[in-house]
Each structure stands twice: as C-alpha cells, then as structure tokens.
Amino acid sequence: MLIKNIKSSKNLKQAVAFNTFRAVSFMVVGILFVILGFIIVRGISAISWEFLTGMPKEGMTEGGILPAIVGTLCLVAGSMLFAFPIGVLSGIYMNEYLKESWFKKFVRSMTNNLAGVPSIVFGLFGMALFVQDLGFGDSIIAGSLTLGLMVLPIIIRTTEEALKSVEDSVRIGSYALGATKLQTIRRVVLPICYPNIITGLILSVSRVSGETAPILFTVAAYFLPRLPHSIFDQVMALPYHLYVLTTSGTDIEKSRPMAYGTALVLIAIVLIVNLFANMLRKHYNKKLK
C-alpha cells in the first residue's frame, strides 16, 4: 500500500512535469505559426509577378520591390564573401595553431564580446570607418563590410567549436603517416567540420539578411528605383524597406499590404537560403558516414 502511494505520487509529479514541458513546447511552436500565418495571410495578396520584378512606384504604394530584393542579396553575398573566409581562417588559427595562453583567452573573450555588441553600434562604426574615413560613401561595400564585421564572431566561434569537436586521434593518425599540420587540417580535419561550419554560415546569413541597424547609415537607400551597377552604389534592402513602408512612407495606409508582402519575401529568402544550406550540410554529413 505504502509502495503504491509513493509510486502514484511519483507518477503524478512525472505527469505534471511532462505535460508542462509539452504545453510550453506547443506554445512556442504555436506562436511561430501564428506569426508566419499572420504574415502570409496579410502579405500573400501583395505578391505578384510585378511585385517581385518591378520597381517601386507612386511613392512606394504600388509597383514592386525588386531593388530591395537585389540589394539584400548583394549585401548577403558581399558580407559573406568578406566574413566567411576571414572567420573560418581565424577560427582555424585560434583552434589549431594558437597555443593555450592568456592571449588566446583574451582573443576569445573579445570575440564573444564582439558578438554581444548591439547592431546599431556596428552601424555607427561602419559609417565612421567605411563610409567616411575610407570614403566608400553609402555603398554596398560599406554595408557588406559592416554586416560582415557583425557576424564575424559567429563564424569564428562556430568554426572553432567545429574544429574542437574533431577527435585528436584523427589528427594524430594523420601526423603518424607523415602528413604536415597544414595537410592534416586541409585533408582530414576540415572535411569533418564542413557540416558544422555550414551551420555557422546559415546563422550568419539569417542574421545579415534581417538586420536593419547596421545598414541604416552605411548603404540603405530610402527610395532608389533602379538596380545597382557597382559595389559603390547605394541600394535598397528588404528590412529597411519594410521599416520605411511601415513608418515613413508617403501613404502608410496604402502601402500596408506592400509592407506585409515585403516581410513575406524576406522570410522566404531566409527560408530558402536555410534550406539550401541544410541540403549542403546533409551532403557533407553523408560523405562522412
């Protein structure tokens, strides 16, 4: 009888805990779906061929958002072109070459701090350095560099973590065959890391494509109904365009559907990039198994 009682009280606790966890999880998923649904429902009516391929017209209350789409893609590509190689290389240096010392600890904590800096501060810094001091002006290159700087810590950290997870036995096995350190890293260690490094890339892309603050002072144009010709051109970008449409358009009420459409496109782009990166990660994972 006693045993039975203890058992039932235990079971009750189990049940309460389990159901609480389940409720919370469902809630999170629910909220996510509500947001997505909200944007899709409001935005889907705005989506059309013209919306995706046309220039904004009539004070951005009509026409399309092509310049913003292209602008965002340019910024994603530009920032990754800059941040990805630098981030991966410094991650490799940090984990493979730099010996454990106060300097390494210092660099690592600085990297972490950098990741915590608010994005608007990056924007301000980008404006001061790239736009003014280096004289790039408001341009794709200035914006890309600023965004790149912002996601650098993410890429460095994920690269470092990925390298750290590679077992030492594999490295030692390679050295024992007469391979140099560089050969070992390039031929054995990095291939193992690709899936995890790509995860870092996904995070960075999502971050870059959605940020408004860093591009505010460095690249984003309020209204520029043409496509960029060079990296020194200003462009429109989806997040900033969204901001403009919602807060300071010529006719906010009229451009509301356009705003939801823009949000939908932004989400779709992020989703598509993620899907693509996931496929890439699966591909490399498969190669390892």
């Binding site: 036995s169 594999v170 030692i172 096995g173 390679s174 054995v188 291939p191 193992i192 190669k287 390892l288």
Partner: peptide, 8 residues
C-alpha cells in the same frame, strides 16, 4: 593506435 582511428 589503441582506438581504431580511420579518417572519415
């Protein structure tokens, strides 16, 4: 080595 350590 002690533990088989083939490369992936």
């Amino acid at each position: 080595f002690q533990k088989p350590n083939p490369f992936p």
